[in-house]
């Protein structure tokens, strides 16, 4: 293991990942959420494109062994494993209004338990990397589930993830991973949870890798990533 870092509840963090590294996220509390934006670190423009990821793999949720794809049609990372078969990617991250619904909060009154939205955290972390509001794009809410009704109605499932649930992502090119552990915007209560992030060395994958064999689209995105990293 290269790095282990516990992201407190309702906080934010970022990490750069070299190609091939494995990022393992673990919920440390029931109901934890990790709202994440993913960028190609070596490209000022390229970033996670959730609609392209979904339509290429005919899915409305993120699950193993899907490949998360960029605007430029390259694999950013592969979901190599998870204790959950559903990570929400349809409903965005929380804004200041969601945090304020639990009452006003500030550093002056609440010190480091100050309630800050995912937007606050993601923008704070993006600015450290010279990025800003134009880099906000569809996010993945790891550990969250928003159920889809027959008529397209959306319903947040507050009992989806419990402490110990995990997901692993294999970086398919050099990445910037930016995340917030603020509650999901559809959560009826302000009940954030902490998330452990570990970076592991990872291993090379072969042609029988589940993400390669999942769909031809997944394999082509992985091949496109190989083309920009070798």
């Amino acid at each position: 293991m290269i790095l282990s870092h516990d992201i407190p509840a309702a906080s934010y963090w970022s990490v750069r990942l070299r190609t091939g590294r494995l990022l393992r996220l673990t919920a440390l509390d029931d109901g934890a959420v990790c709202s994440a934006l993913i960028f190609a670190a070596s490209d000022p423009v390229d970033r996670l494109n959730v609609p392209d990821t979904l339509k290429a793999q005919l899915s409305a949720r993120i699950r193993p062994p899907m490949v998360l794809m960029s605007d430029r049609g390259t694999a950013l990372c592969s979901v190599t494993g998870s204790s959950l078969d559903w990570h929400d990617c349809l409903t965005g991250h929380s804004l200041d209004g969601h945090a304020e619904a639990a009452g006003r909060s500030s550093n002056a009154t609440d010190r480091n338990d100050w309630r800050r939205s995912a937007r606050y955290g993601l923008l704070s972390e993006l600015r450290k990397h010279g990025r800003g509001p134009t880099d906000l794009h569809g996010c993945v809410n790891f550990f969250a589930k928003v159920a889809i009704g027959d008529d397209g109605r959306l319903a947040y499932d507050p009992r989806h993830a419990t402490a110990g649930d995990w997901v692993t992502l294999r970086a398919e090119q050099e990445l910037l991973f930016v995340c917030s552990t603020a509650p999901h915007p559809m959560s009826p209560t302000w009940a954030p949870g902490a998330v452990r992030a570990e970076v592991h060395v990872g291993t090379r994958y072969g042609p029988d890798d589940p993400s390669v064999t999942f769909r031809p689209e997944s394999a082509r995105a992985l091949a496109a990533a190989k083309a920009v990293t070798t």
């Binding site: 979904l54 290429a56 605007d71 049609g73 390259t74 082509r220």
Partner: peptide, 13 residues
């Protein structure tokens, strides 16, 4: 939710 087609994502699909 379906996004826009792109030359690059067309290659993927």
């Amino acid at each position: 939710l379906g996004g826009a087609c792109a030359q690059e994502s067309n290659v993927v699909r």
